[in-house]
Design a protein around this nucleic acid. Structure first.
Length: 424
RNA sequence: GGAGAAAUGGCAGAGUGGUCGAAUGCACUGGUCUUGAAAACCAGCGAGGGUCACACCUCCGGGGGUUCGAAUCCCUCUUUCUCCGCCA
């Protein structure tokens, strides 16, 4: 969430920038924030004064008791009782104002970076780079869900029995290929300086709030009621939350992590033909990269992350494009996002396999993730993350694009991980 | 799951109702000394709100309570440790 101080100081500019994401209610909400925060501060000052007075009197009472002047002490006690009533009222008022301000802040999305193009939907995303070549497939080339059946490497029906739709079972070379991809991605990330971490797959409420999944997107996560925990929708949540309530030194930057985790998403209301096969699942694997950065360096790092992911996709030999998300498609917490899409030849469509974002201080503010700057003041750090990569659609595209009449060829870089070079 | 103990500043560790935001040591930062380093000595050294800056307020695991006054007493939650049980 945004900081009230930032909102106060840049009100006009923020309203303008939020218009890029079609957030039309911005002016109204921002005015309310400022108004409520002013009340909050006034109340805070009144409360502080009352407490100050009360503290003074209490100390006096202490001294009087020690001096044995009980009567005088009792006289002052009456005064403090009145003050106590006052502080109680003010404390309640203060907490109401604080909650009102927080609730308002929760409704305001991150301020889009200047590079974010205006737009309403994914149609308006800006393609900034295309690479690789789309292969010519032989006659009778199949979509990946047919290939999965033909070579018996992914079973979509079997998962129905265990859990339900959207929980596929990977088998034999399918399972091995997926494991190979995970290992390959992790190695690439480690080589680029990202420290590997293994994190919990269940998160508590505070973690969900820290990275912005709660309270806004509660319905997207699986919730375990008995323990009030959520299954992670992405490794971003546990990994970024490693730094919740942390005060860093400037020399700690940059912080780079990579993690492999399964991801669980309810995907409520998104069934249909376009989500066949591996295109959209309730459980899928992903390798994530996360960075904690100095504010001056975060956009540089964002570009570095994009280049890093690009290299991996190029090595795999997939046709791809990089999109800069428009205001309408930009996530609530992000200031600038680049999506990678690969071309799934048999389906004749682009599939998103990575999304790389700079959240600036939006998450850091909720996380209370700060660092001591050169002036010795605490300042919010910047957080970034990206997929490198989401497995199912990479798998789908590999299967489709590298199919031949004799089987599915494994990209050279993966062979040392799979131990085989063809699925037949 | 049962029984007991504990949670204090970056770390260790005092503090059991009244000038305690908190002794002391280590670590860290600056300085003196030194050719340089170490050692020694001097000084500084938690966070948030608030202020032009002070003042002032809040925070001793989280929440609630008792009291004029709570790190200190009570309730509750969480976590950690020890013992027992169970177990990959």
């Amino acid at each position: 969430m945004l900081q009230v101080a930032t909102i106060r100081e840049n009100k006009i500019k923020i309203i303008e920038q939020l218009a890029v994401r079609n957030f039309t209610d911005a002016e109204n909400i921002i005015n309310q924030v400022i108004e409520k925060d002013t009340s909050r501060r006034t109340t805070q000052t009144q409360l502080d004064d009352a407490l100050s007075e009360s503290n003074k009197l209490s100390k006096e009472i202490g001294k009087l008791f020690q001096a044995g002047e009980v009567q005088k002490a009792n006289l002052i006690k009456e005064k403090t009782s009145q003050l106590k009533e006052l502080t109680k009222t003010l404390t309640e008022e203060l907490s109401v104002f604080e909650n009102e301000v927080t609730d308002l802040l929760y409704q305001i999305p991150n301020i889009p970076n200047e590079l974010v193009p205006a737009g309403n939907s994914e149609e308006d995303n800006e393609t900034i780079f295309e690479g690789g070549t789309i292969p010519k497939l032989h006659n009778g080339a199949l979509p990946h869900w047919e290939l999965a059946k033909k070579y018996d490497i992914i079973d979509f029906e079997l998962g129905n029995k265990i859990t339900g739709a959207g929980f596929p079972v990977y088998k034999g070379k399918g399972a091995k290929l997926q494991r190979a991809l995970i290992a390959y991605f992790l190695d690439k990330n480690s080589d680029a300086g990202y420290q590997e971490v293994q994190v919990p797959h269940l998160i508590n409420e505070a973690s969900g709030i820290g990275t912005g999944q709660l309270p806004d997107k509660e319905g997207q996560m699986y919730h375990i009621g008995i323990d009030n925990l959520y299954l992670i929708p992405t490794a971003e949540v546990p990994v970024t939350n490693l730094y919740r309530n942390v005060l860093l030194k400037e020399s700690d930057f940059p912080i780079l992590h990579t993690a492999y985790t399964p991801c669980f998403r309810r995907e409520a209301g998104s069934y249909g033909a376009h989500v066949r096969g591996l295109n959209r699942l309730h459980q899928f694997d992903k390798v994530e990269i996360v960075r904690i950065e100095h504010p001056d360096k975060s956009y540089n790092s964002l570009n570095g992350m994009v280049n890093h992911v690009k290299k991996i996709i190029v090595e795999l030999g997939l046709p791809y494009r990089i999109l800069r998300l428009c205001g309408g498609d930009l996530g609530f917490t992000s200031a600038l996002t680049y999506d990678f899409e690969v071309f799934s030849t048999a389906q004749n469509r682009w599939l998103e396999i990575s999304s790389i974002s700079n959240f600036e201080s939006f998450q850091a503010n909720r996380l209370k993730l700060r660092f001591k700057n050169k002036d010795g003041k605490s300042e919010l750090a910047h957080t970034l993350n990206g997929s490198s990569l989401a497995l199912p659609r990479v798998l789908a595209t590999l299967l489709e694009n590298f199919q031949t009449k004799n089987g599915i060829k494994i990209p050279d870089v993966l062979v040392k991980y799979t131990g085989f070079d063809i699925i037949d």
